[in-house]
Measured scan of single mutants.
Amino acid sequence: AREMGVIAAMRDGFGFIKCVDRDVRMFFHFSEILDGNQLHIADEVEFTVVPDMLSAQRNHAIRIKKLPKGTV
């Protein structure tokens, strides 16, 4: 199932999404941004959540798609 959120932080090559449906900041890597979009803080996005290979306690966001403002 796809989830929605807002870009909360951007770093060098990765960032975090503030999720709508869960009280966490979800890690993502820039390589998972679809359509070659440039994302910025406060952009609204949808994404798929998958378990982190390195840590069973953590998840991360993949297949991130920018949404029109006002969607979330």
Rank of each mutant, 00 (worst) to 15 (best):
A1S: 09
A1P: 09
A1T: 11
A1L: 09
E3I: 10
M4K: 09
M4T: 10
M4S: 08
M4Y: 11
M4H: 10
M4R: 11
M4C: 12
G5V: 08
V6F: 04
I7Q: 00
I7G: 01
I7W: 02
I7A: 02
A8T: 14
A8G: 03
A8M: 10
R11C: 15
R11Y: 15
R11D: 15
R11M: 15
R11S: 13
D12G: 08
D12E: 14
D12M: 04
D12L: 04
D12C: 05
D12W: 03
G13P: 02
G13S: 13
F14S: 08
F14N: 08
F14D: 10
F14L: 04
F14H: 15
F14C: 10
F14A: 05
F14V: 09
F14W: 13
F14G: 08
G15T: 00
F16V: 13
F16L: 10
F16N: 01
F16H: 05
I17E: 00
I17K: 00
I17Q: 00
I17G: 00
I17A: 00
K18I: 04
K18V: 05
K18P: 02
K18F: 06
K18G: 02
K18H: 11
D21R: 10
D21V: 06
D21E: 12
D21W: 08
R22L: 06
R22C: 04
R22K: 13
R22T: 09
R22N: 12
D23H: 02
D23Y: 05
D23P: 15
D23N: 15
V24A: 14
V24I: 11
V24C: 15
V24Q: 13
V24T: 10
R25S: 13
R25W: 14
R25G: 08
R25C: 09
R25F: 12
M26C: 12
M26W: 08
M26D: 00
M26Q: 02
M26I: 13
M26H: 08
F27N: 04
F27R: 14
F27E: 09
F28A: 02
F28V: 03
H29L: 06
F30V: 09
F30A: 09
F30M: 07
F30R: 06
E32A: 06
I33F: 04
I33L: 06
I33T: 04
I33E: 01
L34E: 14
L34K: 09
L34R: 07
D35E: 11
D35H: 04
G36P: 08
G36I: 06
N37A: 15
N37D: 12
Q38W: 05
Q38P: 07
Q38K: 13
Q38C: 12
Q38V: 13
Q38M: 11
L39N: 05
L39I: 07
L39S: 02
H40Y: 10
I41P: 13
I41F: 07
I41L: 10
I41N: 10
A42M: 08
D43C: 02
D43L: 00
D43A: 02
D43I: 04
E44Q: 05
E44L: 06
E44H: 03
V45K: 01
V45M: 01
E46M: 03
E46I: 04
E46L: 00
F47G: 03
F47S: 02
F47L: 01
F47T: 01
F47Y: 06
T48A: 06
T48N: 12
V49P: 11
V49R: 07
V49D: 00
V50H: 04
V50F: 03
P51T: 07
P51K: 15
D52V: 08
D52G: 11
D52N: 10
D52S: 11
D52H: 09
M53L: 11
M53S: 12
M53T: 08
M53Q: 15
M53N: 12
M53V: 12
L54Q: 15
L54T: 14
S55C: 14
S55A: 08
S55P: 15
A56L: 12
A56W: 07
A56E: 14
Q57D: 14
Q57Y: 13
Q57H: 14
R58Q: 15
R58V: 09
R58S: 11
R58T: 10
N59P: 10
H60A: 10
H60F: 09
H60K: 15
H60Q: 10
A61T: 00
A61W: 05
A61R: 00
I62M: 07
I62H: 06
I62F: 04
I62L: 02
R63V: 02
R63T: 04
R63M: 08
R63L: 08
R63C: 13
I64C: 01
I64N: 01
I64M: 01
K65L: 02
K65P: 03
K65N: 10
K65V: 09
K65T: 07
K65Q: 09
K66N: 07
K66W: 03
K66A: 04
L67I: 05
L67T: 05
L67C: 07
L67M: 04
L67A: 02
P68Y: 04
P68W: 00
K69G: 11
K69D: 05
K69S: 10
K69C: 13
K69H: 15
G70S: 04
G70V: 03
G70K: 07
G70R: 05
T71L: 04
T71F: 03
T71C: 05
T71P: 03
V72Q: 03
V72P: 02
V72N: 04
V72H: 02
V72D: 08
